[in-house]
Every structure is written in C-alpha cells, then in structure tokens.
C-alpha cells in the first residue's frame, strides 16, 4: 500500500483584509507527519481550510499546493484526495458504523463489506459494523473515524487537533495508532495542534506560527 505520496506547499501565503496571516513553504514526504503549532488566531485552521479547499471567501491566498507533483490548488475539495481528521470523530449519526466506513470508499472499490470488516478488526472493533455510532465510547468513535479516513484512500491527510478531546490515557494510545497507520499507508500528513506532546509523538518536523 505504501507507494508513497508527497504534499508540497509552495510559497503559500494567506491574507486577510490586506494583512498577511501566514506564510509557509514546505514539502511533506510519504509517511511524514508535519506539525504546525501555534496559539488560537495564528491561522492554523485557516491553513487547513485552505489546503482542504474550504477557504472562506474573505481570505486571499497565493502560492500553490502540489500533491504528487500535480497542482491541486484550484481543485474543489472533493477532488483533492486530501482526508481530514477533526477534533470530534464526527461519525454520521444517521448511518451505522459500517455505513460510516463505506461512506468514503471509492465507488469502484471491490469487496467493500470485507474491507469494512477487516478495517474494524484492525482496530479491535470486529463485529461493530451494524452498531449505531451513538452507542460507541469516545475512543471507539475515534478509531472508527480514523479507519473511515483510511478507507477513503486519501493521498494526504490533515489532522485538526484530533486528540484534544480525548482523555490523557486514551490520547496516548490514539496518537500511536493514528501515526502508525498514517506511516504505514505512506501518507504525507499535516498536523495542527497546540499540544506539544502531539508534536513530539508525531516525530516529524515542527514549525511554530505566530512567533
């Protein structure tokens, strides 16, 4: 699976009402987790929105985003191949656990049911497919959200403080699980956080904004 993808931020510059919010030039290799740290208001979330393709019209952006050497700067969000992991697991409440996992799977992917079962087994949730996501514990939800992301076969991943709402013990386990999985899949990842421990566990380069 680890063919290896590469995410390039080429002189990215975000501007709000004439003043520069953030400038970034970076190359994230396969399996690497690149951490962006900074206090609230430093433009972390704006950066994620820009990369994912949801930048609000109030902002202006310059520079390019390259994924595997193709320019995705102007592509709509759904065609960028960039996956997202939020603070909350955000499992669709109207779908079952399996339904959530299937949601992002490419239409042509064969053996969907088997893949869902395997993915659940990989995170210790074998047989959870038909369950209502509302009945899962916080840690279980987080794991389902991770597997949903991976099953959607992204080419890069953005992590928006994904561990901040978990309690201490769980946070540690989840970090390891997430980072291991991302490395295994060879996905370039960009982590946004204000928790230094997140950055340390990620083990990649760290830059700090707003300094």
């Amino acid at each position: 699976m680890s063919t290896g993808h590469r995410l390039v931020l080429d002189e990215v510059r975000l501007v709000l009402a004439g003043s520069t919010l953030l400038e970034l030039d970076a190359e994230i290799g396969p399996g690497e987790v690149f951490t962006v740290m900074g206090p609230s208001g430093s433009g972390k979330s704006t950066l994620l929105a820009y990369l994912a393709g949801f930048l609000a019209p109030a902002f202006q952006a310059s520079g390019r985003v390259l994924l595997d050497d193709s320019d995705i700067t102007r592509l709509p969000a759904e065609r960028r191949g960039i996956g997202l992991l939020f603070q909350d697991p955000l499992l669709f409440p109207h779908l079952s656990v399996a339904g959530n996992l299937r949601f992002g799977m490419p239409r042509a992917m064969p053996d969907k049911a088997a893949r869902v079962e395997t993915a659940l087994a990989q995170v210790g949730l074998a047989g959870f497919g038909p369950r209502d996501p509302a009945t899962l514990s916080g840690g279980q939800k987080a794991r389902v959200a991770l597997m949903r992301l991976l099953l959607s076969a992204p080419r890069a991943v953005l992590l928006d403080e994904p561990f901040s709402k978990l309690d201490r013990q769980l946070r540690h386990d989840m970090r390891r699980l997430v980072f291991d999985r991302l490395r295994e899949a060879g996905l370039p990842s960009l982590l946004v956080t204000h928790d230094r421990e997140d950055a340390e566990d990620a083990g990649g380069r760290v830059i700090e904004l707003g300094q």
Binding site: L84, L90, G104
Partner: peptide, 12 residues
C-alpha cells in the same frame, strides 16, 4: 459545516 467538509474530504 464540518459535516459537509468531512463528506467532501471523503471524496463525495
């Protein structure tokens, strides 16, 4: 809005 963003990022 994150629900829709999530759906889009999952390729929908």
């Amino acid at each position: 809005p994150r629900w829709s963003q999530l759906a889009l990022s999952l390729g929908t």
